[in-house]
Computed example of a mutant assay.
Amino acid sequence: MSDTVDWAKGYWEDHPKRSLETFGRQITMGFAAVAELFIAIFRRRFPYKEFIKQCAFMSSVAAAPTLLVAIPIGVIVSIQVGAVAGQVGATSFIGAANGLGIIQQGAPLVTSLMIAGAVGSAICADLGSRTIREEIDAMRVMGVDPLRRLVAPRLGAAMLVSVLLCGFVVFVGFLTGYIFNIFAQGGTPGSYIGTFSSFAVTVDLLVALVKSLIFGLLAAIIACDTGLNTRGGPGGVANSVNSAVVSSAIMLFGVNLLITQIYNVLLPPQVV
């Protein structure tokens, strides 16, 4: 009996308790970092050089993978929608279904994967390397706040780059689906554009951009927290990067589901 109790206590200490502590630490750091971001901008202490540097770095890391993923996503959505529309005799509505699918779900999901996999891993590896080299401790000793100097610029850059990536995926995905439908599925340009414009509304794009903004914020918070709490030398950096990517992907997919459900409840699809 005592062995079972000891095992349960050890399991609680190693898994659920540690997970709750990590989640609470990330929430605390997230609020503090966002507050520091706005305070630094208002007081003109925001490190714009670091912000621009991080924007350029994140864009260079994520732009090419995003393009390579957005093209097949547009083709796959077009193929699946075209097959279903052909079975039910609704081929004239392929443009609406394809375009809305890319805007509402395809673009945010591709953005979340790129932010979690490319941007988040880069942030975590950078801060994790600084942590094990004791650069973060040295900054605190010198009176430099890591939240203002390192975390806040990365949060702002991740949010901006995430929104830009989402818009990029929307454009590439819709254009790819349009070209594929016209030249491979025998669709007509007027029908594709006409049905899309009849069903799509501006709010759809705004919600997708808001999703990507939230994804960038959450991925940056998780990556920064994991990197700043790296332990165990170079091997610990690899473990932190893996943890940050997995945690970010799970969190972003869950948040995407929640936002989608709230949007569908508050703004149900219109009947045309």
Rank of each mutant, 00 (worst) to 15 (best):
F93A: 15
Q54Y: 01
I94R: 07
F38H: 11
A32D: 06
C55R: 01
T91S: 14
E135V: 13
V88C: 12
D126M: 03
S121A: 11
K49A: 10
G30T: 07
R45Y: 13
L100W: 12
Q104H: 14
K53N: 14
M29P: 00
I136L: 04
A33L: 02
I73D: 00
K53Y: 09
F23I: 09
R45K: 15
A62T: 15
V81C: 08
G99R: 09
I41D: 03
F57Y: 15
T111P: 00
V119N: 02
L100G: 02
A125H: 01
I39C: 05
L109F: 12
V61I: 12
A83V: 10
R25S: 06
Q104T: 13
G106W: 01
P47N: 05
R130W: 04
G120P: 00
T66V: 12
S129L: 03
F46E: 08
E50I: 03
G101S: 14
I132V: 11
V34H: 03
T111L: 01
K49R: 14
A64K: 13
A63T: 15
I136T: 07
Q87F: 04
A125D: 05
I73V: 14
G89Q: 15
I73L: 12
A85K: 09
A70M: 00
S60F: 06
D137M: 12
A83P: 00
I71W: 05
G86S: 11
L127V: 02
G95A: 07
G120F: 04
R130N: 05
T28F: 02
I132M: 04
M58T: 05
E135H: 14
A64C: 09
A116S: 15
Q80I: 13
E21S: 07
A33C: 03
A63C: 10
S78E: 06
G82F: 10
A118W: 01
R133D: 13
D126F: 03
A116T: 11
V119I: 15
R133A: 14
G82D: 05
M114Q: 08
I132A: 06
A62Q: 07
S78W: 01
G86E: 11
V110E: 03
V81L: 09
A83C: 05
Q26I: 04
M58D: 05
A122G: 06
G82A: 06
L67M: 15
G120C: 02
I94N: 04
D126K: 05
L109V: 09
I39T: 14
L127P: 00
S78I: 01
L113M: 14
I115H: 00
A32G: 02
A85T: 13
T131Y: 01
G117N: 09
F93C: 06
G74V: 08
R45D: 14
